[in-house]
Amino acid sequence: METRNSDRPLLPPWALRVMAFGALAVLVGAATPPGAAAAAEVQRFLAFYAGVFSLIAMSAAVVSGLIATERMILRIGHRVLAQAVHRASALVGFTFLVSHFLVKVLGGQAAPAQIVVPYAGPVGLGAIAFDLFLIVVITGLLRPRFASAARPWMWRMFHVTAYVAWPVAITHGLTAGRPAANWVVLSYLLCVLGVAMAAFTRLLVTVKPRSVPRGAPDTMPAATVAGQRTTSGQRQEALR
């Protein structure tokens, strides 16, 4: 099942072309004076906010991951959507994280080694968080392989490192660099609150015995089954 055929490539053939053209346009654009000014603006923006956005996206990933198994309110379709949001926001967060430390390192504000090696101090906390997130992201991408492997629970062991990485990242955000602005502190507090609520929900779901629909007819109810069915198009949309 690991095979890919040419009917369904990993990336659509136009994606690579768009990326190549985009990269070329940026390079050419940066060579012109207004383009260079815009590039400098983008760099300044990323230097200040990439880390914050990364943390917010990661928090969204943690929240959507926690509630993705909630069954009291969310229906199956919602839970599929929650998983999609979980993956998408983790990807966005990770992308911002990469641009965060690339801008810092290329701007000379940090040494390349500081990305992965946790030196003492607030920046070191960021390195710890990054290392742990790297484990989570890599094992997350390999999840289907764990399902077929002999010990599927190994995957959970790797994935719970997110619970360590996330608070470390929050601490890093509040302590590293210049003193945090009020709105940043506020948004971090909101993130903490959101994660706490989601964790509480997950706890409830785990502890509370699941209600099983009783008194259903012996044959599979046609209505339920029809409700589960969606066309391929709807399914595609649900995952976007």
Binding site: G77, P213, A216, P217, M220, Q228, R229, T230, R235
Partner: peptide
């Protein structure tokens, strides 16, 4: 059951 309605049906539980 949601993602593979062709192959998987859900029972009453």
């Amino acid at each position: 059951g949601h993602l593979l309605p062709e192959l998987v049906r859900l029972d009453r539980y």
